[in-house]
Every structure is written in structure tokens, then in C-alpha cells.
Design a protein around this nucleic acid. Sequence first.
DNA 1: TCAATAGTTCGACTACATTCGAACTAGCCG
DNA 2: CGGCTAGTTCGAATGTAGTCGAACTATTGA
Lengths: 104, 104
Amino acid sequence: MKAFNHPAIESFRLEQVLYALSDPVRLSIVNQLANQGETTCSALDCGRPKSTMSHHFRVLRESGVVHTRCEGTTHHNSVRREELDQRFPGLLAAVLASREAPTH
Amino acid sequence: MKAFNHPAIESFRLEQVLYALSDPVRLSIVNQLANQGETTCSALDCGRPKSTMSHHFRVLRESGVVHTRCEGTTHHNSVRREELDQRFPGLLAAVLASREAPTH
DNA sequence: TCAATAGTTCGACTACATTCGAACTAGCCG
DNA sequence: CGGCTAGTTCGAATGTAGTCGAACTATTGA
């Protein structure tokens, strides 16, 4: 398959990134990628069909959050950590650190 | 007017906060509140009718981002800085710091 | 060449968001 | 009381997003 067009850092838009991260499925994807490093689409279990997952990966790619590397028929996804941190310092770290509600 | 029900810190949900901040109008509101401190609804100029602004303030209130204090007929709005920072450390700061694209 | 696998794209459906005008509520002041 | 002002709520119109099955593309391997 052909490679994807990933947006350049300068064209990242804060609203778009926040929107991409505001969906539970996508937030779960990003958390898993952040924990496991590069991961294929099918290795993430979100209990949803491929077409749905593909849609969410596209949203994440187009916002600049995720990079997809094609190798044969498999797609290796990773979080664009350095670039996100350069453009929006501290944002990703804050989001990743805020997964769970505090114990009460 | 009667006071609003503001959610408690424990019930803040990350997705909801990110979603609230992912709208340009609401992001503008939050930025203005962060800069100016407590501000009335009408003091914010977003070029939109009252009903639209009221809707956005409600979204911001219900997500926990904004607190509204009623005094007579005017509503004083402010960002719930300490509580947000307690629940999602660094998130608000990162969002507020990321307003503009870098010079290029 | 044929089948299997990984993932995308398309189309349809449903649900929800944004927007705004109009009507409403509540407090203030003459 | 009557009018003014600040802001909410309602309802309708429009747009957009999430979901999924079905069809498709591309690659690997027998």
C-alpha cells in the first residue's frame, strides 16, 4: 500500500489535536501506542471492526498525533511524541498522565 | 437567576474536557478568561449571538473547565484553574501555551 | 496463479453538535 | 408596576461524526 501523507509540525492545529484525543476509542489507541511503542493496527484490541479502527487511525494521523509506517501489508503505528512535544509542549504528557480518575 | 451545578473534581472526565476545548469558540473563551480573570459573558466578544455563547458556556461548565458565579443578572465566569490542575496536572497550561502556530 | 491476510474506502444509517431567532426568566431601578 | 438588561431555554435547521458491513487494494507465500 502507498504511504500516507502525514502533516508537518507547522500545520498541526491545537483544536484538531484536542478533538482527535477527545474520543474514547482514539484515546485508548494513543495510550496503547504510548505504552507499547510501535504497534500494528490489528494488535490493538478495541473490540471494533477494522473499518471503524481504520477511521480512527485516519483521524489520529490527520491531526498529527500518530505516524503510520507501511511495511508490506502491515501498518506500524506510533505516537509522534517529539513533534507533538515540540509544537505543544507538555500537552501529550498531561493527557497520557490523566488516564484514570484519582482514587477517592 | 439560580446558581449552576458545577461538577466535582472527581467527576471530571478527560475526554469531555478535551472535547470542550476542541471548539474554536470555546478555546477563545477559555483563553480570554485565562488572560482577563473573571469576566462576564457579554464582555467576551466572539461575534456570536447570546444563545450561541450561552450554549458554549454550558459545555465549558459541564466539563468542569469554567465556573460561573451569579451576581444579580450578570454571570461572572472564570477558569477552574486549581481544580483542573489538580485533576489533570499540566493540561490547562499546555493548552493555554499552545495558542498560536510558531513563527516560520 | 490462487488464496489468505492487513488494512482502506465506500455507502448508509444514526446520533449528536453547532447555530440562531424567538420566547422566556430573573434581577435592578425608575 | 413597568421597562430594561443579562442571560437561559426552546425549537428547528443544518452539518458533521461514529459505526459497521461490503467491496476493494495490496502484499505475501504456497
